[in-house]
Amino acid sequence: MEVTLTHFLVVSTLLFSFGIYGVVTRKNAIMVLMGIELILNASNINFIAFSRFGNFGLQGQLFALFVIVLAAAEAAIALAIVLNLYKTFVNVNVDEINTLKD
């Protein structure tokens, strides 16, 4: 069986869906961040798959590298924010951190 673009897309869709699921259902900010990482990686799979099967050259692979870098930077900042949140609120539940609403 030959691995086609569809297989890649199905995997990335599953990964994206898990990611979304994680982002939407988890209360813990770290779990949400992990969901975001999953979404980013799903998009990375898509980028690379389209780069492999499409006629776009190396742009897709390059973008995947960008996204990994971005994800690393984002994780760094987000974890710093989560740490600060923890310092302020003693927990990291996103639905309880709502003082801006008031």
């Binding site: 979304i20 939407v24 996103v94």
Partner: peptide, 12 residues
Amino acid sequence: TGKVQTYIIMGI
């Protein structure tokens, strides 16, 4: 609701 997660569901 003020919850980002709800908005995301809605967006999706």
